[in-house]
């Protein structure tokens, strides 16, 4: 296995890490950079627990090679709050009890933020289809979908 050195921007900070050729971005984030907020639920792109933004697009970091990340900008759940101020989505998930075990929550938040950044006024159907790649086994999605819709409404009013 060949080794590589990658320089990228993660949550606004320039980082530099080694990786193997076959190593995924998810593994590099977790094991090289200690950013364990992105979770491995399936390693096949079917659960969305590892969702991150890569150059402005929502992706599963388990389906990206770490070596591909050179020169790219990556945003993870760890970069979502502004210092000590939670993002409105994070606040709303807490206020509505839109999480139970919480392991899917980082992926949902990253994905939901990507939606609201491009569409401030999504319908319930829009939210459900946008989030269809994020599996949650605890909530039945009801409170998650409500949290995203209510946050959108709050942010439009702000």
């Amino acid at each position: 296995m060949s080794h590589y050195r990658v320089t990228a921007v993660v949550n606004g900070d320039s980082v530099d890490f080694p990786c193997d050729a076959g190593e995924t971005l998810l593994d590099a984030l977790r094991d090289r950079l200690g950013l364990t907020g992105s979770k491995e639920g399936c390693a096949s792109g079917d659960c969305g627990a590892c969702s991150v933004m890569l150059d402005g697009r929502l992706v599963c970091s388990c389906l990206v090679l770490a070596a591909e990340a050179g020169g790219r900008e990556i945003e993870t759940i760890e970069g979502m709050a502004d210092g000590n101020a939670l993002h409105p989505l994070q606040r709303k998930f807490l206020d509505l009890g839109a999480l139970q075990c919480g392991v899917c929550t980082p992926g949902f938040l990253v994905a939901a933020k990507a939606l609201l950044d491009r569409d401030p006024d999504p319908t319930e159907t829009d939210v459900r289809y946008w989030l269809a790649g994020n599996l949650c086994r605890c909530t039945g999605y009801d409170k998650i979908v409500r949290a995203v819709l209510e946050t959108a409404e709050d942010m439009r009013g702000a």
């Binding site: 890569l54 929502l58 992706v59 389906l63 990507a114 946008w130 790649g133």
Partner: peptide, 9 residues
């Protein structure tokens, strides 16, 4: 094909 995440790639 796949989810929003998959569509990103």
């Amino acid at each position: 094909i796949g989810s929003t995440q998959i569509q990103g790639r």
